[in-house]
């Protein structure tokens, strides 16, 4: 039985001596069962922070200021976020650097078996059998022998597989993958992406995939949300977003991919840099870097995310014009 995850108007606050800052603002996302959702943004745009809030592992200085996180249970009824344990049991997370999330003094098998013993009350023997089964599922060959091996024997790609196995141990409904392939080589990255796809097909798990690489998104994700300076600026299906972005920032990101650039021309880049959290511009946050900005963009509060069609939403005031302009890549 798979579940649907809904995040509604999530805002995360960090109180600093110079006043509160908001690394995530009015973040809304809905994840259908078996869907792979991409979360794209630059460092500091709040993608990791939003997901940490969902799993309940925010740093001590941060807390959820408002918003709700809902995960449907077996009867398709939504359980509110106040019941943290429901979320924690059903949402698992994997991280960018597998090495630092594995205990170097514990065999990899034990680390996968640990949650099984703690949460499902399995005996040592049962947990071992189950863990070996999980190892097979994530494509670790010779699983029985690898159970007693320590993390330093494993390559980065294999460690990431171990981490995925541990995340899947208690049959989560949603897997949050925070840049799981950024530290890996392209050939290994491809294997891990294929693994995630296969797991989704086999188990119907939903995946939220955090990345800054649009190429990975185009290969893996069904829908994608683009974050800029703590806010979602555009959500759409992957195909729609990549072919017809309706927010200048998404457009800029797609254009600045070196893969799609022509060699004899300068790479189209977005001028300037993202604003700091404690010095957000008023109005649209992309305004200082935007080539489509008009006077209306300077309104006091950032433009809200509006639905532009049944499955798309956008936070640009001029999205209609951008649509008719039929923005192309030149």
């Amino acid at each position: 039985m798979m579940s649907k995850l809904i995040i509604r108007d999530l805002t995360v606050e960090i109180v600093t001596p110079s006043g509160p800052i908001f690394p995530v603002e009015q973040f809304s996302l809905s994840v259908e069962p078996g869907e792979i959702v991409g979360l794209v943004g630059e460092s500091g745009s709040g993608k990791t922070m939003a997901m940490r809030a969902v799993v309940g592992i925010l740093p001590r200085s941060a807390h959820i200021a408002s918003g709700e996180i809902l995960l449907s249970d077996a009867d398709n009824a939504f359980v509110p976020s106040s019941q943290q344990s429901h979320l924690r049991h059903n949402i698992a997370m994997i991280f960018q650097n597998p090495t630092s999330y594995l205990d170097p003094l514990m065999s990899v098998g034990k680390q996968v078996a640990e949650p099984l013993r703690l949460h499902q009350g399995l005996t040592r023997k049962e947990a071992r059998t189950e863990a070996i089964e999980l190892f097979r599922k994530v494509g670790i060959h010779d699983a029985e022998r690898q159970f007693d091996v320590y993390p330093h024997h494993f390559s980065g790609g294999m460690k990431q597989r171990v981490l995925i196995a541990a995340a899947l141990a208690c049959n989560p409904k949603v897997l949050i993958a925070d840049e799981p392939t950024t530290a890996l080589d392209v050939t290994i990255q491809k294997q891990i992406l294929e693994l995630l796809c296969r797991l989704r097909d086999e188990t119907g798990i939903s995946i939220i995939f955090i990345t800054h690489d649009l190429g990975v998104v185009s290969q893996l994700c069904d829908t994608v949300s683009v974050l800029y300076a703590a806010r979602i600026v555009e959500s759409a299906s992957t195909i729609e977003l990549l072919n017809a972005p309706l927010h200048p920032y998404s457009l800029g990101l797609i254009r600045s991919q070196p893969e799609s650039a022509q060699r004899d021309r300068p790479l189209p880049s977005i001028p300037g840099q993202p604003p700091a959290l404690n010095a957000m511009p008023s109005g649209c946050r992309f305004l200082p870097r935007c080539e489509f900005a008009i006077q209306a963009c300077k309104q006091p509060s950032p433009p809200p995310l509006v639905q532009t069609s049944a499955v798309r939403s956008n936070a640009c005031l001029r999205w209609r014009e951008l649509q008719t302009l039929g923005l192309n890549y030149d």
Binding site: V186, T187, Q189, K190, L193, D213, L214, G215, V216, S218, Q219, I239, E240, L242, N243, I254, Q257, E259, S260
Partner: peptide
């Protein structure tokens, strides 16, 4: 082949 390009053509 492992290079994750933008697959826009299948739109």
């Amino acid at each position: 082949e492992s290079m994750p390009g933008l697959h826009r053509q299948d739109y």
